[in-house]
Design a protein around this nucleic acid. Structure first.
Lengths: 161, 161
DNA sequence: CCTATTACAGATATATTTTATCCGTAATCA
DNA sequence: TGATTACGGATAAAATATATCTGTAATAGG
């Protein structure tokens, strides 16, 4: 079980887009080159972010993408769910219904006990992601990444925005 | 991103094996029929549980599987990891290394900031699963499942053990 | 000892999902 | 008008999940 690599790409793209001045858009082509990933496929992830209102895409020359709201209003969960979907990682196939001892009428009732436990763990995962905003990420990046790399990257991106 | 259906099967099988008296083994064939799932493929999951020391498999007639330790010593995480593996759901492909502004030498240092956050969420998921034992599951099942279904199921299984 | 039954390991096959790539369209800016 | 961009849909290739099949070794019971 793996998350799509698009999730990683989307997160890094959002991190990068935080550096954009007001009204400036970054083309998918530039984001793809910066991260060394295929442009066409990355575009699908960016479109998913756009459809979920996390980024804004504009057409034409000087078009591209930028964040749709302030970084502190965008959580990791927003981004992950936009790309990966909101469904739980655990699919309950209701195999308890195959128990030869349970009558067919017994359809209703609570969801499966096993599923409830798995879904709760899934919610813990989401809760953890919900608690981290892009602002939090920026703060961590400021600690982790050397200042010159940060500055050079900003310049590189703005040249191409 | 989905967990394997074998995870669901393995959890339900472990739930069922709690009902076994000392020294009694339940064949994969019976577990498969009880849950309405293909025997051959279920066997792979049971073998994974066996390899990880969660169940014990014995050969020959009257052979089969039983839990390797007390139910309160087996967590959901044990079972899930046995079938699904211990690797994080988030694969970091180190795309930060593709940044054209970062020199090649810069290999070392901390793991990627984005990855650390994703791995932390993964750990929250595991922590949640670690906190639920088979005993906890049994308690919940006692509440959720009607007594007669529980009794009939036990009888059905023991007939075939 | 013989036979039926079982777990187990490995090879193979099928289905589904992920990972792309390609193309046409519409919008936008110079 | 022409270059550039996002967007949507179709298609293709690769990886993974979902099985199935085979043979082997161990074991209980006759």
């Amino acid at each position: 079980m793996n998350l799509k690599n698009q999730v990683e790409w989307a997160l890094h793209c959002c991190a990068v887009m935080m550096a954009l001045p007001e009204g400036v858009y970054l083309p998918a082509k530039v984001l793809a080159e910066f991260h060394g990933v295929p442009k066409e496929y990355l575009s699908k992830a960016l479109q998913a972010l756009s459809q979920h209102g996390i980024v804004i895409g504009t057409l034409g020359p000087s078009g591209g993408y930028r964040l749709a709201r302030a970084p502190d209003q965008i959580s990791f969960l927003d981004i992950v769910e936009a790309v990966e979907g909101k469904r739980s990682t655990f699919r309950c196939e209701e195999i308890r219904g195959n128990n030869p001892c349970v009558p067919r009428r017994h359809r209703a009732g609570k969801p499966c006990t096993v599923a409830r436990i798995m879904w709760k763990a899934d919610e813990a995962w989401r809760e953890s992601l919900r608690g981290v905003s892009l602002t939090d990420l920026a703060a961590q990046l400021a600690e982790d990444v050397p200042d010159d790399v940060l500055a050079k990257s900003r310049a590189w991106l703005l040249e191409r925005a």
